[in-house]
Computed example of a mutant assay.
Amino acid sequence: MNPIDRALGILLMLTGGKLVTATELSRRFEVSLRTIYRDMDRLLSLGIPVDAERGAEGGYRLAKDYIQPPVALTLNETASLLVALALVRGLKATPLSADLDTAERKLLAALPRRARELLIEGGRVVGIEQAPVDIFHSEKQTVERGNMQVAVDRFLEALLAARRVRFRHENPYRGRVRDYEVEPHGVLFDRDRWYLVGRSVDETEARIFRADRVIEIEVAGISFRPPKDFNIADHLGRTWLASAMRRWESDGDIAEIRVTPEQAETLARDWFYRHAAFTRLASGDTLIGIPNPTERELFALIRWLGPGAELLKPLDLREKLARSLEAMAATYRA
């Protein structure tokens, strides 16, 4: 028996979960103990997770769940997965992209030739639009130091291994970079960006980090027990934005705008402004508090809302807005 056939036979013997001694393997394959030891070293060098236990009751066995039972998929099921892979590749960052490539090759190998030729380049038959540029809700851009692909990959790898991650995260609004050690819980995709959901060891509740603002991420050696009650669905509908706004309100500047009931109803349907603080006034109007405002954003919002909307704070921008509106009015009166 050649070494390759023997290595495959050893793998099959180790998959049952029961410890198999080197003596048993030597007897089964009719080779010396030294040859078996060399075979085990070869398997380990290939990255195959063989657990070895010493002592009289010791032996070898394959790490649990290393070899999975075969999964039978229909032609349509296989094609649907390949289409999904093509869609995912349209994103700015594809989680675990290298592993996705090998999975795709395995799926393609299971298809009949005609279907394989059609789907071998899924990008030719499946397209995905990138999220449009949102010029109304302006954001302060992050200095391009982070790598969203790397951040998502390391975060998912840590999640699968139930290990913490350490990274630096940039906050462009505060002009600071902070170090975090986080227990990964999940990831979500929104408006062409990935967000990492996890609990910082310094906090009691999970929070969300933008992946493209993560710098120098690494998987830590410290393991943790993933919370059984966590569900990423609880963070959909941009509920994360509501909690983020409450946090921004506590440590940042807030702009206040008085709007009519109709304008408040319109803003309550907006993906971003709906999560701002709405306070009903005795007059029937609504006071809206917007954290981390920019001059450009506030001026565009007031102009878009039109008559009935009034910027109350900050006072310096209120005066500047008045001059801007007067200049616009003069243009139309000319």
Rank of each mutant, 00 (worst) to 15 (best):
D234P: 02
P49G: 08
Y180P: 02
K64S: 10
V83E: 12
L14P: 12
V177R: 07
I135C: 07
L311F: 10
F167N: 01
L14R: 13
A268M: 09
V165G: 00
I215V: 14
F278R: 06
L75H: 04
S324A: 15
W240N: 03
T266G: 05
V71H: 05
V177N: 03
D41E: 14
W271K: 05
M40G: 14
L100Y: 02
D229L: 13
R280C: 00
N76C: 09
G59D: 06
V143S: 14
S243D: 11
S138E: 13
V152H: 07
V152E: 08
R105L: 13
R124I: 11
T74I: 04
R124H: 14
T286W: 15
V219E: 13
V214Y: 00
W194D: 02
R323L: 14
L160E: 02
A56M: 12
E30G: 12
D316Y: 14
I290Y: 03
V126P: 04
P184R: 04
F224D: 06
A115L: 15
A110K: 10
A322W: 01
L62N: 05
F167D: 01
G16E: 11
P49M: 07
S80P: 02
G306E: 11
D229R: 15
G221K: 15
R174H: 13
Y60L: 09
R124G: 08
D253G: 08
P3E: 13
L325A: 12
A255L: 04
A309N: 04
E203A: 13
R296T: 11
L33H: 10
V125W: 13
Y66H: 11
P69K: 10
V201L: 12
L267D: 06
R258A: 12
A103G: 00
G127C: 10
S223L: 03
Y60H: 04
A7N: 09
H137I: 00
P314G: 14
T239V: 07
I36R: 01
S80N: 04
L8P: 03
E104Y: 04
F189C: 00
H275A: 05
T266F: 14
A161V: 02
F209S: 03
Q149L: 00
A52N: 03
A93P: 00
Y195F: 15
E216K: 09
R116A: 13
I10D: 00
P49L: 08
Y37E: 11
A220E: 14
V71P: 00
D134T: 05
E216Y: 05
S223P: 04
R6G: 06
R116N: 09
F209C: 01
V201E: 06
G146L: 02
I48F: 04
W194A: 02
L12D: 14
S45N: 11
A115H: 09
R238C: 01
R38Q: 05
R38I: 00
R124N: 14
L301P: 04
D234H: 06
L108A: 02
R333T: 12
H185E: 08
L46W: 08
L321H: 10
P172A: 07
